[in-house]
Design a protein around this nucleic acid. Structure first.
Length: 385
RNA sequence: GGUGGGCUUCCGGAGCGGUCAAACGGGGCAGACUGUAAAUCUGCUGGCUCACGCCUUCUUUGGUUCGAAUCCAAGGCCCACCA
């Protein structure tokens, strides 16, 4: 699958194939814990675990890289324990690549519990209310101790809607902090990605992207999308950000998303994605399929003997029925949540695998059309199809 | 056979003369979820209109009262203890 004969140094990004009709491309990004194939979906494992899933199972479903979170791990278990336990990989028993988010998203999601200052953000812990400070320096220090393969710059993720003055200010803040992150020491072989902000303002996105590129990061992310805006605005934000990023560096769209949105983003030239949706929504009872999501806990699946998704080869679908999963979810059995999470991740991962194959074999545009027909048939979501 | 307690909307269970279609919990149903404060959260849950409103309900029957799920009488069933 990966054509390179020998191991490449961390940060090497080999572009394998470019689509003739869109911005899509396949590639391999090398990290200190091995290569990842792009376009890729990265399961989210905020608190040193992809919720409900064992790393062994992640291996089995061919997950190549997962996320961890600076903010959460700093609070619990804390960096002294992380250091004693030898970093995040050793701690959680996962030896493939890890990307850590910087805590920038918590500036957005914990808006009621923090105050933004010039050098960083003073947070009040969502756990016990304890006050602490996190800025670019602190975030990088934590990410260094965690020993992630890819660290993210500490940024200010803004909400939607957001006025231009506020967004401009957040971009300046993000750039100032990005510069600071670059100056901080990294872990051995650790890559650092900068994050493009700018909200819905095209010129701001452009400015932010160009400034970051001038600083020289190992990769670039588009942040501040999928924060509640309507889909067209989301896609525009991605396009505005990706457009100005260097061709030869990986491009990561943060927080995406939905299968269809990812195909659109890849088409615009994006390479990496992460999203809590397949895992969180599994816990909340919805199944993702190649024909869209549906609520397995709905009464209509009470005695449905079909698997969650027909034709799926995941450990859930190859053994049990919708009726069984619905029953487990209904009575609150932990296995229900586990099996459905397994399925949803499998669905996302195989979707990306197929997408890479389509790009490599030069039929991405056609494949994308097919997916659109299945995932967005007149805007109506399929229900257990 | 005796004495006492009880029967409330799918279930459990408040209510003890009007402010009661009836608290609350469960269950059921529906919806939400996009760098995880989320195995979470929201709404609905007698009928008709689904707004206002109207209609039929709180074991049964009869009664007291301007007015009863709430008071009285009798019947039915259940529970406890004593025989």
């Amino acid at each position: 699958m990966i054509p390179t004969a020998r191991t490449q140094p961390p940060g090497t990004f080999e572009i394998l194939h470019e689509d003739a009709h869109t911005g899509a491309r396949t590639g391999v990004l090398w990290t200190a814990h091995g290569p990842i194939e792009t376009p890729i979906f990265m399961p989210v494992g905020t608190q040193a675990t992809v919720k409900a899933i064992d790393p062994r199972e992640l291996h089995e479903m061919n997950a190549q890289i997962i996320l961890g979170n600076t903010y959460h791990l700093m609070l619990r278990p804390g960096m002294d324990i992380m250091a004693t336990c030898g970093g995040l990989h050793r701690f959680m028993g996962w030896d493939k690549p890890i990307l850590t988010d910087s805590g920038g998203f918590q500036v957005f999601s914990l808006a009621g519990l923090r105050k933004i200052k010039r050098d960083g953000v003073s947070f009040q812990s969502h756990i016990d209310g304890a006050r602490f400070f996190m800025g670019p320096k602190e975030s990088m220090e934590v990410q260094r101790i965690l020993g992630s393969d890819i660290a993210m710059a500490f940024d200010e993720c803004i909400p939607w809607p957001c006025d231009e003055a506020y967004a401009t200010n957040a971009v300046h803040q993000t750039l100032r902090w990005a510069r600071r992150c670059l100056e901080e020491p990294h872990a051995e072989g650790q890559l650092l990605f900068g994050i493009v902000q700018g909200g819905e303002f095209t010129e701001l996105r452009e400015y932010c992207a160009k400034e970051l590129v001038a600083m020289g990061f190992d990769g670039y992310a588009v942040g501040g999308v999928s924060v509640g805006e309507p889909e067209p605005a989301l896609l525009k934000g991605i396009a505005d950000g990706v457009r100005h990023l260097p061709w030869n560096k990986p491009r990561y769209v943060m927080g995406l998303g939905d299968l269809w949105q990812m195909t659109q983003a890849v088409s615009l030239g994006a390479d990496m994605f992460d999203c809590v949706i397949p895992t969180r929504n599994a816990r909340n009872g919805s199944a993702f399929t190649r024909s869209g999501p549906y609520p397995v806990k709905a009464g209509e699946f009470k005695s449905d003997t079909r698997p969650i998704e027909e034709g799926c080869t995941c450990p859930c679908c190859s053994r049990v029925s919708r009726a069984y999963i619905r029953h487990l979810l209904n009575v609150g059995e932990i296995l229900g949540v586990r099996l459905l999470t397994l399925h949803n991740l499998h669905c996302y991962l195989t979707f990306m695998q197929e997408m890479r194959e389509a790009i490599n074999a030069d039929y991405f545009a056609q494949w994308k059309e097919e997916q659109t027909r299945r995932l967005r048939p007149d805007g109506i979501r399929a229900r257990g199809a």
